Simulated assay, not measured.
Amino acid sequence: MPALNPYLNFNGNAEEAFNFYRSVFGGEFLVVSRFKDMPAEYKASEKEDNLIMHISLPIAGGNYLMGSDVPSSMPKAVTGNNINISLHPDTREEADRLFKGLSAGGNVVMPMADAFWGAYFGMFIDKFGISWMINVETHPK
């Protein structure tokens, strides 16, 4: 079974929210990436450079609370679209099987493909309106 983690979206206050979550759960951030860290072809506007592209906070039991700010090029985060279920299977084959099965009858946002951060990644909204992300780490740990 792949790891399953909540992924939260924010409208410019992800860093504040995650500092709050860290004050409650404890620990240290595993990853903090900003939009300025993206390759030029994927960048949002310069005014969004310091916003959080991805942040990950380990919490109990090997789980992670993850999130990002939503760039202005995407729909604003509102209750209902501000959380995704993030699956982390071990193989591309398992990722493709899960993506195909769970996205059937839904809306593919990003098909499974190699991503610039070194993962095999895809996003979709299932036929029940639930947002999913599938991420397979492809670089050595």
Rank of each mutant, 00 (worst) to 15 (best):
M1G: 08
L4K: 06
N5E: 00
L8T: 05
L8R: 03
N9F: 02
N9K: 04
F10K: 10
G12C: 02
N13P: 00
E16A: 04
F20R: 06
R22Y: 11
R22V: 08
E28V: 09
E28S: 13
V32D: 08
V32I: 15
R34S: 12
R34D: 14
F35C: 07
K36T: 08
M38P: 04
M38R: 09
P39Y: 12
E41C: 04
E41R: 06
Y42R: 02
K43V: 09
K43H: 15
A44G: 12
A44L: 13
S45V: 14
E46T: 11
D49M: 08
N50S: 13
L51Y: 12
I52K: 02
I52H: 00
H54C: 08
P58Y: 07
I59N: 03
M66H: 09
S72P: 13
M74F: 13
P75I: 15
P75F: 15
K76N: 13
A77S: 15
A77C: 14
V78N: 14
V78R: 15
T79Q: 14
G80D: 08
N82A: 15
I85C: 05
H88C: 04
P89W: 04
P89N: 03
D90P: 00
D90M: 09
D90F: 07
E93G: 11
E94R: 05
A95V: 05
R97Y: 08
L98S: 03
L98Y: 05
F99Y: 04
S103P: 03
A104G: 01
G105Q: 01
G106F: 01
N107E: 11
N107I: 05
V109A: 05
V109R: 04
M112H: 00
M112G: 02
A113W: 08
D114N: 14
D114W: 07
A115R: 07
A115C: 10
A115T: 07
W117M: 12
G118R: 14
G118E: 09
A119G: 10
F121V: 07
M123Q: 10
D126R: 00
K127D: 05
F128E: 03
F128A: 01
G129Y: 10
I130N: 00
I130W: 01
S131C: 10
S131F: 04
W132D: 02
I134F: 04
N135M: 12
V136G: 04
V136S: 03
E137K: 14
T138C: 12
T138V: 11
T138P: 11
T138E: 13
H139M: 11
H139P: 03
P140N: 15
